[in-house]
Each structure stands twice: as structure tokens, then as C-alpha cells.
Design a protein around this nucleic acid. Structure first.
Lengths: 196, 196
DNA sequence: GTCTATAGGGAGATAGAC
DNA sequence: GTCTATCTCCCTATAGAC
């Protein structure tokens, strides 16, 4: 792994744990075992490191979800929707590094870099939404999901769960069986609420 | 309003907008029209200001919810649960100042002050949960809510909505009719999912 | 309680040798 | 690309006069 890649990798961890302001260039340099000024040979400034970190995280995040959807293509809409949730929350790398970072900065974007990173996040959202709405509409065509419901209402609640489970998982430090139970509780009410 | 109260009031706004680290003592001092060192006549340090801010926000937040529940006592469980959500998200003060602050620091507590403020937040959660579980169990006794569901599963989904709507409202900048629509979409799937 | 002045430290960033 | 040395700025916090 090149120094540049190492810097991104370690900065993702630091930014997620401490936040943007509280992550100093010195700390990043220590993690990749160089001195602070050497960072500037790889990136123009701290904002550039952050931008590259966001870019990598959103790409990996979207890739993971789209791949999971692909793999579930032969299953019912119910199973696909459940799998996407389940896989997202039982994959440790996704949960511990990408997810932590993604949600911290989606929710509370540092002022100085907001303009730069908002387009990156918006793009990732659009990719996910267009993949999910297809599955929901297929489910309605199959009569798995109540066709009387607007597909956008179903998508809205699903995305609501998808996005915010992350918040709860982190907040309550849910792992293993507890996480599984939590996911199933939330899912069961959702599915009762949309099934045909 | 005393200077001390002014400091808390303005610091709540600043902390919510910029976060803990990015809110400096100088900015707080400017907002209350004194010089930075004068702040130290009122509070020991920045952490103390933050602690007092959290304390005030959690108290006002819980008070508001418990009062709303009280006022809805003569209504059905369905109406009470809906009202609590609706009132919380159509009250501007709650949404713009208390909510913004509360969720920012519930989700991403600054390292240095985490140990101090976590008990404050935990207490507020417990107060809300014990009030809500009563309403849900009443609803099951009345046959409004499916008694076959565990009341804790219902509470979990309700709290999930209650807590995380805030995240979405802020993220999508939902206001007025859009917010109303969003709330109703989420509510409709939830109620379909728990009703008898 | 409020001020001016300042200590002391850490931040981001740059210059220039190797 | 990496380093040492350093600049400049802003931070929290304190000393001490009024």
C-alpha cells in the first residue's frame, strides 16, 4: 500500500473516531509513521485529505450495497430488502469503519468542507435509491408488497430504517445477537406495515 | 436574563451549529457581549459551559415531551403517540435549538466530556421510555394495538422513529408541508405495522 | 464582574536542506 | 519524499488592575 493510500486509510479511522477538528495533521502523520510536513508532499492540505477520505468511503459503501443487491437478484423482494439490511449490519468492516465515518459526516459535515463533500454524498444516495425503488416496485408487481401503497412511501420508510439503524447501532453499541434482535424487531414492524 | 443564563443560551446555539471543538470561548464571549476572560468568572472552563448546556437542553426536552403526553391523556393511544411525534416536530424552538443540540451530542459526544454528560442523556432516555411504554400497553389493553406484539418491540420501533426523524428532518431540511408529509408517511407504515 | 495583557501550547502550513 | 526548523495564528486559561 502506497503512503498516499495509508494516509487515507488511517485518516478515515481518525476522522470517524474523533471528528474533523479534533483530528490533527500530527496524529495522522504519527499513524502512518512520517512527520507532519511530509503529509504535504501527498496532499495539498487537511481539507484535501478529508475530501479523498469521503470519496473512498462513499464509493466502497455504495459498491457493497449494490453488490449485495446483485447477489440477491434471484430472491423475492422481501428477502432482498431484508438481506441488504442484514448484510450491511453484519459486515464488520462496513459497520466499524465505513459506516462510522459515513454517518458522522453525513449528519454533521464540517463547515469548511461542506460545499465540497455534499455532492459526493448526494450522488451515493441517488445510486442507492434508484436500485431500491426497483426492488420495491417488483415486490408490488408480485403482490408481495401492498400495491395500494405508494412505492415512495415504502422506500421512505425503508431508507429511514436503513440510514438510521446505523445511528442506533452505534449509539447502543449493538453487536452480535443483540444487533440481530434489534434488526428483526424493527424489520418485523416494517414488514407488517407494507406487506400485501 | 442573567449573564450566566445568556452564556448557556448562546452556547447552546453555537455548539449545535459548529460542534464542540469549533466553538471557541471567544465566539461565546462575543455573543454575550463580554470579553473572553470574563466567561471564567461564571464558569470554571469550557467543559463546564458545555455540561450546563447539556443539562438545560435535556431538561427542557424531557419536560416538553412529558407535558405533551399529559395533555393527550384523554385521547386514544394512537392519537397520543401521534401527537407526541407531531408536536415534537412542529415546535420550532424544540426543533431548531434543543433538537439540533441534543442529537449532535447524543450521537457524537466530544471525547473530553463524554463521561460527564452520558449520565444526563441516559436519565432523559429512561424518563421518556417509561412514559411511552405505559401508553403502548394501554393501547394493547384497549385493543388499539395488537396485543400479540411485544410492547417492547412496539416501543423500539416508535423510539426508532422518534429519535431518528430528527436526523432526517435536519438532513433533508424538512419544514412545513414537506415535514408533515414525511411524518405521515413514516407514521402510516408504523401504524399499519402495529395496529390490531 | 469585567477588563487588558499575556502565558503556554497546539494547530495548519511553509522553507529549504538532503 | 522526508526531514528539521520555523512562521503565523488561534486556542484555553490565568494574573492582576479596576
Amino acid at each position: 500500500m502506497s503512503k498516499k493510500e495509508q494516509i487515507i486509510k488511517e485518516s478515515i479511522r481518525l476522522f470517524s473516531e474523533y471528528g474533523y477538528e479534533a483530528t490533527s495533521m500530527t496524529k495522522i502523520a504519527e499513524k502512518v509513521d512520517i512527520k507532519k510536513p511530509s503529509l504535504y508532499a501527498h496532499f495539498k492540505n487537511k481539507e484535501a485529505i478529508f475530501y479523498n477520505a469521503v470519496e473512498q468511503v462513499t464509493e466502497e459503501y455504495v459498491d457493497f450495497i449494490l453488490t449485495t443487491i446483485q447477489k440477491s437478484r434471484h430472491l423475492s423482494s422481501k428477502e432482498t430488502l431484508y438481506n441488504v439490511l442484514h448484510q450491511s449490519y453484519t459486515n464488520e468492516y462496513l459497520l466499524d469503519f465505513l459506516g462510522e465515518f459515513f454517518y458522522r459526516f453525513v449528519l454533521f459535515t464540517p463547515y469548511e468542507v461542506a460545499d465540497q463533500i455534499k455532492p459526493l454524498i448526494k450522488k451515493s444516495e441517488e445510486q442507492l435509491e434508484s436500485a431500491l425503488i426497483k426492488i420495491i416496485e417488483e415486490g408490488q408487481a408480485n403482490r408481495e408488497i401492498d400495491p395500494a401503497l405508494s412505492s415512495h412511501v415504502v422506500l421512505r420508510h425503508y431508507l429511514f430504517i436503513f440510514n438510521n439503524l446505523d445511528v442506533d447501532v452505534r449509539y447502543y453499541s449493538l453487536r452480535g445477537i443483540e444487533l440481530e434482535q434489534y434488526l428483526n424487531d424493527i424489520w418485523s414492524v416494517f414488514w407488517r406495515g407494507v406487506k400485501n
